[in-house]
Design a protein around this nucleic acid. Sequence first.
DNA 1: TTGAAAGCGCTAACAC
DNA 2: GTGTTAGCGCTTTCAA
Lengths: 338, 338
Amino acid sequence: MKNTGDRRRTIYDVAKAAGVSISTASNALNDTGRTNAETRERVRRVAEEIGFRPNALARGLLSKRSHAIGMLTNDTYGRLTLPMAAGVSEVLVDHGVSVFLCATNNDPRLAQLHLEALLDRQVDGIIFTATRLDLTPPVQLSRLPIPVVYVFAEGPADSVTFFPDDEQGARLAVDHLKELGRSRILHITGPRDYLAARIRAQSYLDACGDGAEAMFGDWSEEWGHEAVQTVFARPGAKPDAIFCGSDEIARGVIDALRDLNVEIPTDVAVVGFDNWEVVARQTRPPLTTIDMELKELGHRAGLAILSLSKGEPVPAGITRLPCRLVVRQSCGSPLRSE
Amino acid sequence: MKNTGDRRRTIYDVAKAAGVSISTASNALNDTGRTNAETRERVRRVAEEIGFRPNALARGLLSKRSHAIGMLTNDTYGRLTLPMAAGVSEVLVDHGVSVFLCATNNDPRLAQLHLEALLDRQVDGIIFTATRLDLTPPVQLSRLPIPVVYVFAEGPADSVTFFPDDEQGARLAVDHLKELGRSRILHITGPRDYLAARIRAQSYLDACGDGAEAMFGDWSEEWGHEAVQTVFARPGAKPDAIFCGSDEIARGVIDALRDLNVEIPTDVAVVGFDNWEVVARQTRPPLTTIDMELKELGHRAGLAILSLSKGEPVPAGITRLPCRLVVRQSCGSPLRSE
DNA sequence: TTGAAAGCGCTAACAC
DNA sequence: GTGTTAGCGCTTTCAA
C-alpha cells in the first residue's frame, strides 16, 4: 500500500511495517552499523513500498550538513551567470546537493538578506558570481563559517576562484587570425574598467605587437558599429581583421562593414567573444568566436564547493579555465591564397 | 563578544546569556506568548550581540514548513524563465522564503531527481515553468502533497496557472499599427506547435479580418529574413506593416527590409514581441514591441505559491497577465499624415 | 545483530 | 510573565 497522501511516511512507519526498531531501520537504509543482509533487504523493500523518503531537514539538523548550497549572483540574470548556474546544478544534483538561487540585483540590502537566509538554512557553501569586478563587494563574504567559491569575481587573496582564461581566449582568436594570414588586426572591446576587457586587450597587444590598437567602448552593438565607422573614416591603412571583445560588438562591426561595402571575410575577418549562439549564429556570415565554457566553469565551481564543504582541500587561488575557439564563417578558410 | 566562529549560537546560548529559559527566549524573539517588554528587549539585544541566528532546519522540522520553494524549469535557461525567476525570488525573499532552482534540461530522469530532492527538503510548494507546451509532462506533478503553480505551462484543469496574455498582447500590437493608419498588416511568427504562436496569430487574424496572413516558421532571425524575401518577391500588394511573433524574427525582418531598400517605418512599420532589450534596442530603427512583464509574472506566481502554501485560497485556472506596448521608433509617429 | 535512549535546535502546550 | 517538558524525524552511541 502506497502512501495514501494523508501524511508523509517516517522512518518510524518503516520500522513498524518491517517489524524492527527505528535504529535498525536507519542502519539498514543507510548501510551503517552491522545489519543482517536479510533484514536490510526487508527494510528497504518495505520503505520502497510505503513510499518512504527521509526528511532532509531532520537529517540536516543532526548532521549539520544541509546538502544545499547558495548561489549569490550580482548579475541581473544575464547570459553569463545562468549557463553557469545550470552547470553547477547539473553536477551537484547527482551528489544530492540542491542549489538556492539568490539574485541580489547589486543591492547590498538584498545581498545581506539573502546571505543571512542562506546561513540560517545551514547551507554547506556559497558560490558567489558577478559579471564584473565590483570594487566594494556587496556583502562581507570573507569571514563566513562556510566555504565560498568565487566565479567571475575576485575574492580575497587565498580564496578559491574560477575565471575563464581571458588571456588564452584572446590569444586563440589572434592566433587564428594570424594563421589565416591576417596581419593588421584591430581590437574593439568593452569598457576599460572591466577586468576581462583589459586582460583580453593586453593579450591581444602582446600577441600583435607594433601597430596594434585596442579600442575601448561599451559592450554594445552600437559601439562596434561606431568604432568601425571611425576607423574606416580616418586616413591610413585599414585593418584586415577585427577581434571583438564580445559577440554583440562583433555584430555591430559586421553590420557596419556591410554598410561600408567591405566584404567579410574577404576584406576583413571578424572574431567575436562569448559564443552567445543567438547572436553568433545569426550574423551574416555566422561568427567565429571564443566560447568561455560557462557550463564547465559551473561544473568546476560546483565540485570545488562540494569538496570544500566536506573538508577536503582545494587548491586556493585563481583557476583560469581554457576557452575554446568556435569556427564559423566570418574569418574565411585557412586555405585561401592570401 | 561576537560569535568567535567556533560554533553557531543557539537559542540556548541566548537564554543563558540573558539569564532566562529557552522558551522565554523563543517567545521574546518571536513575539509569541506573553513576554515582559523589558525582558524581550534584553533577550533581543543579547541575541544580536552574540550573533544568534535561528536554525531554519530546526524550525522547519517542527513547523513542517521549510519556507523554501522549488522552481522546476524545462527551459535551458532562456531569457523567459530567468527574468521570471528573478521576480519570484524578489517577491519571496521579503517573506523569508528561498528558492531552489532546478533545471531539468527536459530530461525526465533529472526532473524526477530534482522533484524528489525538493520533496525531501519539505519545500512548501513548487513553481513549474516551461517554455513550451510539452505533451508529456516531464514528471508527475498532479498528485503532490504540496501546491504547484504553473507558469508558461499548462497544468491539470483545476490548477493555478499563469501566462502572459498573448491574445491581448497581439491585439495591442495590431491596434497600435491600425491607429498609425496601417491597413495591410502581415504577421510573421514562430512554429505552429507553440501555443503562444497560435494564440497570437489568432488574435491577429481576428483583429485584421480579411486579407490577413499569418506566416509560421521558426523563432529565428533567419526566418524573419526569409519570410520578408518571399513576400516581397511575389506579385500583389505589399504589406505596410509587419507584426512579428518575436523580437528575433523582427530583427530578421528589419534587416531584410533594409536589404530591399524598404524604409522603416515610412514604407513598412514593424512591431516585435518580447521586449528582449538586447535585440529590441539594437535594431535600426529601435523596435516597438510587446513586453510580457516577466518579472510581474514571477511576482504573481511567487505570491500565489506563498498563499497556497499557507492554505489560503487562490483562484484556480489560467490567469493571463496583460502585456505592455513598448514604443520605440520602428512604427513611426502617430502624427504622420498618411 | 538489534534495540533503547539521547539529542540535533527549535516551538508550543501547559504548569507555575 | 516565565519555566518545564515533550517532541518534530532522524542518526548514533551504547547495552542487551
